[in-house]
């Protein structure tokens, strides 16, 4: 985990410095085309330490990192950790809701699709899930908003209300982006569930269960689904990458103040420390999700638990 993060940190740091474009000071002071004297720019650069050699900047950043300090945003001057912190809850909630939504949609649909293979039920479910793969989440998001706007003359609230403060308001805001992101997620998981169950239902132990006289629905639920879950879990873990990608655009579409939108803003502003912090956060999130997936594996599959 540590070597991975270190690699990520080094990569992102130096990649940012070699990328072309104005730096954060230019963006902040001259971004609107204002006539700002060079000495002011230089003074700000010195204040932000941008006048130092890149390698020195790197070591001072790493020094802070080792003490758990992500540094300060070059744009807002506030600690990166603070900026991430205030946005994390929202993104986490959307990601979580999208995942839960995806699973809630995928498991029953995928199972139905597999059981009623090649019937009209299967066809409809497959059309829905293929559509999910084809439709980009931001486009679906725009459709959702336009639908709400034209039909209900209503759009979800713009500012975030924490779930514990007002669950209804919170959900009325976040359910839509979760849907937009979760749809693709669910589509992938539905397809995986379907093929996984189809595969599992061919397994010898399914035949064993039937030969024992187990009720067919128990054969599916008890013997089939649990075994079919493993590849589905894998896919859910892998798709988490797309989820984060989806969040970046979906948060724009829904104007959500989350990690994804901050990412776009930080890149547009050339806010290096912020981008670095964000990339590290995503890397940590990835590692954690994979760890969770491993744990889930172990929970579902005793072969992993006991080996």
């Amino acid at each position: 985990m540590i070597p991975t993060l270190l690699g990520v940190a080094i990569l992102v740091f130096f990649m940012l410095r070699v990328m072309p474009g104005d730096d954060v000071v230019e963006m902040m002071l001259r971004g609107e085309g204002a006539d700002v004297p060079q000495h002011i720019i230089e003074a700000e650069r010195i204040r932000l330490g941008l006048d130092q050699p890149v390698i020195m900047q790197f070591f001072s950043w790493m020094g802070g990192l080792l003490q758990g300090d992500l540094g300060t945003s070059m744009w807002t001057g506030r600690p990166v950790a603070y900026e991430l912190g205030i946005r994390l809850e929202l993104s986490l909630q959307v990601a979580l809701m999208a995942t839960v939504l995806a699973i809630l949609i995928a498991l029953p649909l995928g199972t139905l699709s597999a059981i009623f293979r090649n019937t009209w039920i299967d066809h409809i479910i497959r059309i829905v899930s293929i559509a999910g793969l084809a439709v980009p989440s931001f486009w679906l998001g725009m459709l959702i908003i336009l639908f709400l706007l034209t039909v209900f003359r209503w759009i979800p609230p713009l500012t975030f209300t924490p779930f514990l403060e007002d669950p209804l308001k919170n959900l009325s805001q976040l359910i839509w982006p979760a849907l937009a992101v979760g749809y693709r997620y669910s589509a992938v998981a539905t397809r995986m569930t379907r093929s996984s169950i189809l595969e599992v239902m061919q397994e010898d132990y399914i035949r064993t269960a039937r030969a024992k006289g187990v009720y067919e629905r128990l054969v599916v639920a008890r013997h089939g689904m649990r075994n079919a879950l493993l590849p589905v879990i894998t896919v859910i873990g892998l798709e988490f990458a797309f989820l984060i990608g989806g969040l970046v655009v979906t948060e724009q579409v829904f104007s959500l103040n989350g990690i994804g939108r901050l990412f776009v803003q930080a890149v547009a502003r050339g806010d290096y420390t912020m981008i670095q912090g964000l990339v590290l956060l995503v890397a940590v999130a990835f590692i954690l999700v994979n760890f969770l997936i491993d744990l889930l594996y172990a929970a579902v599959d005793p072969r992993i638990r006991y080996s």
């Binding site: 132990y205 035949r207 030969a211 024992k212 006289g213 075994n227 579902v300 005793p302």
Partner: peptide, 25 residues
């Protein structure tokens, strides 16, 4: 027929490695 299976006629399969459900005790 389900009642006959397992109760009156039982079956043993070729592959002991795959004929038991790996996730159940």
């Amino acid at each position: 027929m389900r009642e006959v299976r397992g109760e009156e006629i039982a079956m043993i399969f070729q592959e002991p490695m795959t004929s038991l459900n790996p996730v159940l005790p």
